[in-house]
Design a protein around this nucleic acid. Sequence first.
DNA 1: CTTAATTTGTCCGTATGTATG
DNA 2: ACATACATACGGACAAATTAA
Lengths: 216, 216
Amino acid sequence: MNQSKRYLDIVRDIRDMIRHENIKPGDRIPSERELAETMQVGRSTLREALRSLELLGLIETRRGEGTFLSDHRNHKLVEVLSTFVLQDNQSHEDVWETRLLHEVAAIQAICQNEAASQMRVWESLRLRLKDESFMREDFVRELMVLSGNRLSLKIWFLLKQYSGDPYSGTVSFDEIDRMNNILTAIEQQDSETAVREFKAWSEWLQKERIRNGNDS
Amino acid sequence: MNQSKRYLDIVRDIRDMIRHENIKPGDRIPSERELAETMQVGRSTLREALRSLELLGLIETRRGEGTFLSDHRNHKLVEVLSTFVLQDNQSHEDVWETRLLHEVAAIQAICQNEAASQMRVWESLRLRLKDESFMREDFVRELMVLSGNRLSLKIWFLLKQYSGDPYSGTVSFDEIDRMNNILTAIEQQDSETAVREFKAWSEWLQKERIRNGNDS
DNA sequence: CTTAATTTGTCCGTATGTATG
DNA sequence: ACATACATACGGACAAATTAA
């Protein structure tokens, strides 16, 4: 049946074991030697399987302690992809556009969700806008989180880094007005206005950055 | 500096080697023993790194032949993660939403680009719609390509696989009408209608899949 | 067809660093 | 301080598959 690639069988067996034993994230799974014994494989072969799963972020191994099942949501999907997908794509414009794409979608998702748009969060966000130490990034990140799409949030985090920290620096008074307008539109579930205002702010920000030569 | 996890260094080194030596997909990379010697690590440790890269689908090892750099399309990563991580519904939904997010953005980008919306491509695409062997995926992929955002295209490719090939199967007559409507809207640069029609089609497709139980 | 060399696949033994009690 | 359990790492040995002479 499985002529070669024993370590793939091991990956499958470990998955089945986790399912059947009802192992939850954070729980410890049997040690390498135990697994090797029960599965009738060598430790080296078993370790190859464990390493693969670790690189994907599915398990976490700590020397001297053991191997643990990591949170499913912390899968290294985007991190792994970033090193192999994002790198050969040097188009800064694509990265910027794609990031904006996720941000706009987040705003639309929030507007369509009545519960989200009526949240108490907006009030506190408005208050924080007045703080001097408030950063642009905090504002956008809050929107991404509230969209409820964790995968999109993760991708956004990465794209943000690859855009050369587009939200660095502190905000001006003019920008606080912009943000307040966006928040108002969201509270009124006016998706169109919110997106339009956000895009306008984003474009202004991009030009501002180019003018200042922050192209790292 | 690097206290533990030597195999992670090896992963990085191999990646850098591939970059600097300009190794292309299909090319053979040095043997395990050679790499172990040049990198001054044991062969077992090196194999752990290679296994990880193989599970990601980045390399391909054939017994007796060697190790080869594989085409980036063959991501085993997808199968593993889909059976491992995406067990809960929220993750599935996030993937589906994020994919749709990129598709909608692509349509909007095309509509806003006069040159793209007036292209000759649409005619040929209409003709291909009549072909029996025409697949749903061809239609959507064409849209993604024409959006001009290559990064978004790459992300879409992966998300598509993660969704469990949402576009598998052949199209029905009803669907061809839907696609034609979408194309018409795009040609008229009517972004709203195009997006609305596309979303409707996508939702219908999702329900259809759930009804047929294609959840692999 | 046979043989030899190369390469991956697998397992074992041993030593070491680390955390826990 | 000591013992135990565990992951980390290395090198050796042999099997299996492929290729070339």
